Computed example of a mutant assay.
Amino acid sequence: MKENVTRRAGRPRPVAVAPPPTPPEPGALAAKVRTLAPSMTRSMQRVAETVAGDPAGCAALTVTGLAERTGTSEATVVRTARLLGYPGYRDLRLALAGLAAQLASGAAPAVTADIAVDDSLADVVAKLTQDERQALADTAAGLDLRQLEAAVAALTAARRIDVYGVGASSLVAQDLAQKLLRIGLVAHAHADPHLAVTGAVQLRAGDVALAVTHSGRTVDVIEPLRAAFDRGATTVAVTGRPDGEVTRYADHVLTTSTARESELRPAAMSSRASQLLVVDCLFIGVAQRTYASAAPALHASYEALAHRHAPRRR
């Protein structure tokens, strides 16, 4: 792997550069648009929504033709393609052709309406199930497996792991830390921002700091990640905004998708399932690579907890 020198804490340190991200599969294009559109400029939104809404028609257009159709510029079209994960417009056109073929074969994703105040519980269950299923499918389709592999490798070799998250994301951070503890790794979840920064400044090369933030701009998560980054720890961001500020301090970025937000389904709810999918993938990847030690550790924790659930004798 090529080496690059990144300045941290006032001194150069060799840092392995992760391979460039793999362009999304055709089926992941709509998911990428849903995830990134809120953070795009209006002109880029027009391009992204146009190609997602009419992949067959746009696949036949040149970059100039798409710019004219969307009332934007060629530079905006190219920037949109790159933000969606494609090296250039040619790669986006190939993905559009592939997506058009999928849609023609009947592989279009189901879409449900937002949950209404007067919906029956049966409708709520059906709509939530469909939304969660779509969010998980979108996250899986858009997940960069090379970034995931690099994050798993870093966690596997880590001396210590700190995980940051606040609000709903703190539940996801705690879930990952608890799983890693059960296979014998030294892992801590920090929901208190002061304790998170206090712990982060103790990290160094060989440690891992992982931040969970849907928005990518939660200050209480970014600050400890930046402190860990500056001290040479390997840093990972699990976020719904790959262009968010948190990624400036992340060696590896794992992008999540979300179900559609609504009045009764805020971002905290819609992002949670996708975040849990990503941290479960991280945990399983680490457990596979440390199976010789992870399996006995899991067994020991099961045994210890089983005794706590045993009925008491009177």
Rank of each mutant, 00 (worst) to 15 (best):
V246R: 03
S257T: 05
R272M: 09
V238D: 01
V246C: 06
D220E: 15
D251A: 04
T256Q: 09
E261A: 07
Y249G: 00
A250Y: 09
V236D: 09
A273S: 12
T258M: 10
A268E: 10
T247F: 13
D243G: 15
P224R: 09
P266E: 14
T234H: 12
E245P: 05
R241I: 01
V221T: 13
T258D: 10
S271G: 07
R260D: 02
V238H: 09
R241V: 11
D251V: 05
L264D: 00
S274K: 06
A233Y: 04
T255H: 07
Y249T: 00
S262V: 10
V246E: 01
S257A: 11
G216P: 12
P224L: 06
S257K: 05
V253D: 06
D230K: 05
V238R: 06
E261I: 14
A268P: 12
A273I: 14
V236C: 04
E245I: 08
R248I: 10
V246G: 01
G240N: 04
A237Q: 07
T255K: 03
G240Q: 05
T256R: 12
V253R: 07
E263C: 02
G232E: 06
L264I: 02
P224S: 06
T258K: 06
A227W: 09
S257E: 07
T258Y: 01
L254D: 01
A250F: 11
V219F: 08
A259G: 15
R217C: 06
V221L: 08
V236A: 07
Y249V: 11
H252R: 10
A273T: 15
A227I: 03
P266Q: 10
P224C: 11
S257W: 04
T239G: 03
A237T: 03
S262I: 13
T234M: 06
S262K: 14
L276N: 05
A227P: 04
F229Q: 06
S271H: 12
E263S: 04
I222C: 01
G232F: 00
A227K: 03
